[in-house]
């Protein structure tokens, strides 16, 4: 291994160390209050208190956290229960209001 490859390994080492330090416990979750119009079409993860119910195969409800509330809709997603939850989905605008089309339920 020559000096240049050693330098490459040092750079890679700094990178992996930084990733581990900065990424420790990172979930890429946003607060409800942080969801803005410019996020329409973007995939988000939000944690909070979920309320609502099924209507047929689809689920309609809302998610609240300490910063606000947002409408949540899920089409054909099973196993959703009201209560504390982290959901993932796409931000959409429906009749002028923001909502999340839920794709994953943790």
């Amino acid at each position: 291994m020559d000096r240049f490859e050693l330098l490459c390994l040092v750079v890679a080492g700094i990178g992996i160390l930084g990733m581990l330090l900065v990424g420790w416990g990172y979930e890429n979750a946003v607060k409800v209050g942080e969801i803005k119009d410019e996020m329409v079409g973007v995939w988000v993860k939000v944690c909070g208190n979920l309320s609502g119910r099924y209507s047929g195969e689809n689920w309609f409800g809302e998610l609240r956290d300490g910063t606000g509330k947002i409408r949540v809709v899920a089409f054909g997603l099973n196993g959703i229960r009201p209560g504390p939850a982290c959901i993932q989905g796409v931000v959409e605008s429906y009749k002028g209001e923001l909502e999340i089309i839920m794709k994953r339920y943790d």
Binding site: C8, L9, V10, V11, A12, I14, G15, G18, M19
Partner: peptide
Amino acid sequence: FCSLFVSGISA
């Protein structure tokens, strides 16, 4: 940091 790691290994 990921770019540092990836570029070091890719090089």
